[in-house]
């Protein structure tokens, strides 16, 4: 398997009136074609900003250093013009909030077809025909009628389907889904996850699934990377991560996920607050919240260490296979 998307030593920082803040610090990741990578972490852990940087969508005060290669092409050094030939065509993004992510004054058909018209030089008629085709593929009922509708005439679930259809228009090599189910009702969430599973099975695209919900990852991802305070703290196959989590943060996250098969009186939480990025704890950023903290954690940051089968962790504590 070859990696279509490789992130190498990526750091994303934002200049604020109170000084520079690093949202992402020196992370490296790769995704293979046909593979689904789950990127898990709390709000502010840098998971979204990593891929905002990849698509050149960082806010004006943000800068990214390192390398993000799409099939060998460095996205960070690419010009806006070059980037525009890749975005939508070879790498596409599905955003978190379908309610506000579609242009309110444009018909669905136009918003879908313009991707093709821009990248593949098709005429309007072909563009709309392909848009209809795509709406059918994401199982939007009465698709023909929807083409002529405006976003506010569709429900949240349908709008997210439209967003997915939009990302698929050019059959990109990489699809980044940024919290695709967070803004939706629980029943609709399940439907969208089914759709994403279908997309994954039918296309040879690499899918990056950004989420804070381990349940979503379990059903869809092949590999999981866990981020904390801008760094990757653990990465491995979905089986390894769920069966034998090595980092105390991952263990905490798993313990927090409510389960039907285990009877508990109360919801377990990770004690403490996510760290302030402007003032990160010394050593391992997680040490103030960690149950296994030792002196070394407070002064020294653990490096990523490879265990077996590509399972890596950033923790001094020796891992005992479960």
């Amino acid at each position: 398997m070859t990696s279509v998307l490789e992130i190498d030593g990526l750091t994303v920082s934002f200049s604020t009136p109170d000084g520079d803040v690093s949202a992402v610090s020196d992370i490296s990741l790769s995704v293979d074609a046909g593979e689904c990578l789950g990127l898990v972490g709390e709000s502010g852990s840098g998971k979204s900003q990593t891929f905002m940087a990849a698509l050149g969508l960082l806010a004006d005060n943000g800068t990214a250093t390192g390398e993000i290669r799409l099939d060998g092409i460095d996205l960070l050094s690419a010009s806006e013009k070059k980037l525009n030939t890749l975005r939508g065509e070879r790498i596409a993004m599905i955003f978190q909030d379908p309610m506000t992510s579609l242009t309110p004054h444009m018909k669905i058909g136009r918003q879908l077809s313009e991707v093709l018209i821009e990248h593949q030089n098709v005429d309007t008629k072909t563009g709309w025909a392909r848009a209809l085709d795509m709406l059918n593929r994401v199982h939007i009922p009465a698709a023909e009628r929807r083409l002529d509708m405006y976003p506010h005439e569709l429900s949240g679930g349908l709008r997210q389907r439209v967003m997915i259809a939009m990302a698929l228009m050019c059959e990109p090599e990489v699809i980044v889904a940024d919290e695709p189910t967070t803004a939706l009702d629980v029943t609709v969430q399940a439907q969208i996850l089914d759709l994403l599973t279908e997309v994954k099975d039918n296309l040879d695209a690499a899918i990056v699934l950004i989420t804070h919900d381990l349940g979503v990852v379990a059903g869809l991802a092949d590999r999981v990377a866990v981020m904390y305070a801008g760094r990757i703290v653990e990465q491995g196959t979905v089986g390894d991560i769920f069966a034998s989590p090595a980092h105390p943060y991952t263990q905490g996250l798993l313990a927090c996920t409510p389960r039907l098969d285990v009877e508990t009186e109360e919801l377990i939480t990770i004690l403490g607050q996510p760290p302030n990025l402007q003032n990160l704890p010394s050593g391992c950023s997680f040490h103030p919240r960690c149950t296994y903290v030792v002196e070394q954690c407070k002064s020294e940051r653990p490096a990523l260490e490879v265990m077996n089968n590509g399972h890596i962790k950033a923790c001094f504590r020796p891992h005992v296979e479960a």
Partner: peptide, 26 residues
Amino acid sequence: RTNYVRTARAKGLPFRTVVLRHAFKS
């Protein structure tokens, strides 16, 4: 600054088109 302008940019539309087609009317 809206999300839909971000979507339009993520589609790879030239900035001119993003502004004129997606942002200007609102």
